[in-house]
Design a protein around this nucleic acid. Sequence first.
DNA 1: TTGTAGGCGTTATCAT
DNA 2: ATGATAACGCCTACAA
Lengths: 338, 338
Amino acid sequence: MSKKVTTIKDIAERLNVSIATVSRALRGSTDIKRETKLAVMEMAKEMDYHPNLLASSLSSKKSKILGVVVPTINRQFWSNSISGIENIAYGLGYKVMIFQSAESFQKEVEIVETLANSRVDGILLALSKETNSYGHIQNIMDRGIPVLLFERVCSEINSSKVTTDDLNGSKEVVQHLITRGKRKIAYLSGPMSLGVCEARLTGYKEAHEENRLSFDPDLILELDDFTYEAAEKALKKLWEGRTRPDALFCFADILAIGALEAGKKLGIKIPEELAIAGFGNDDISRFVSPSLTTMSQPSFEMGQLAADLILKEINSEEDLTEPHYKTIKPELIIREST
Amino acid sequence: MSKKVTTIKDIAERLNVSIATVSRALRGSTDIKRETKLAVMEMAKEMDYHPNLLASSLSSKKSKILGVVVPTINRQFWSNSISGIENIAYGLGYKVMIFQSAESFQKEVEIVETLANSRVDGILLALSKETNSYGHIQNIMDRGIPVLLFERVCSEINSSKVTTDDLNGSKEVVQHLITRGKRKIAYLSGPMSLGVCEARLTGYKEAHEENRLSFDPDLILELDDFTYEAAEKALKKLWEGRTRPDALFCFADILAIGALEAGKKLGIKIPEELAIAGFGNDDISRFVSPSLTTMSQPSFEMGQLAADLILKEINSEEDLTEPHYKTIKPELIIREST
DNA sequence: TTGTAGGCGTTATCAT
DNA sequence: ATGATAACGCCTACAA
């Protein structure tokens, strides 16, 4: 009993009209008689008709699907952004296909290719930390697929972009630490290949310059993994290093919390001996003790903005739309750890 | 300069072979001469050919896409499960389309319909908390689409299922609290419409029965929202209620942590005056203070298992495969809060 | 091993 | 307002 799936053709036959008419009626085309339209819709229901989106997409060359690529959905920033993207997309009739690159360049390349081959209408992408060549992205853009880079962007690609104001955000945190009287501020960074990391380093430097302070390059550590363990190791290294820091600014809350816990284990007084600040304002940051000072990134809104931008691009007639750049300001949340 | 996209037809023409040959060569069919195969692949590269997955799916009636529906990807349990699903699916050449029902029945219905219309090869679904009728699911199953329910399941649907052993897990936690000398154990539950919540309540009851203890129904609170705020309110209510609890078992870590923080604010000594236990072992649970006793759910593995099961179902010849039920045991993690 | 030809289910372009 | 009919790009018997 392989239940025959009804198609518009079946409906057309039963109604003695052409399949074109059925197609039009079903999609609410204007130039169609009220009665036929109703008849079609009724028959569709009666015959338990369900449109085949594949066929529709193939024919119309529009899939109504947005592809999203993030390093992982397991971190709050990313899952929040995705929610924001979905929120906007869904309202406009778009579906979202989500992929995780797991910080692997190879996987990112595969995913992007798959997405393109699936004929998604647009791709929202946050680069993996391994990514430092961009041919795969340029490729799909050349194929005519709109791309928007968000949060993890690069200057080599001329697409629309949505980013955090990392430079000023970072500067603000460091300024805050300086104001608190700290003078040996360490920076626990991610890999500098990431523009975000670099931008935050620049903010760190500018804050020092503006206060006519120098800083010890030894206090800048580049971590490969965003894990508690990596942060713990880094803290120990810093604490035993030639210049013992009196403050620690971390690239992400997860690192800050790893360091904070490690610091507590070592008996370091926080914030007196060592002030700690993070970036991201993950849920968890308000619950650790001492609670964590951090920059709040409006991740949900960033997702919304990104989706909004790319959808506008997709639905704009002209092929020649200039890429849009949007930067969102993070907000300093001062808590006990500083 | 609308760049013409090359198709297998173009390749065929350039090579003076038939479309069928090209199609076969590209998909590594066995009965094809080595040389022609190589020639085709070379030409494909030269002409910058990219397969159109839409067309392929339409024709083959296989999309190689799995649909996943969860309440939200913002909670660790769900994002971890999804990672597990993706992990397995990706390895077998399947893509994953992720949707969030946002706990809305209406949205769940729409999503399921969309997924079915997109001709996904299978759907992995965790019910929204609003869902208490299941016609939309039965429908797509009748349409021949494999469905697997995970974590949030129901007995009304006869599909494969992957669940946590909620009953025994819950019983174990409560037993643990009893062993600690607690006798007035409150249960902060989600809506009882969810099978998970009910199962954990049963575990709660059984633990009491096995210890020949009675419990006060007033100590069982049903929350609608999984938020810190909801938990805070609930705790206050319990604390001022007619029976003041000496322990609190929460349906999810997020509730436990909300209660824990609220308790601290009220000056309640944890665990002496009030022991608190959660469920899920979110990252955050080890960082709150006192750190949280909780049941660890292997969410990633559950996702893997779920994907594995449904993919087996999809790729099994017979249409008549019996649904599989798998239950995964959670593990008690004892920390300071009890 | 390769070619022919008829789908797959819609949309879109011309006519009428 | 409706109908024919050709795409859309690929797959797959069936033939050769």
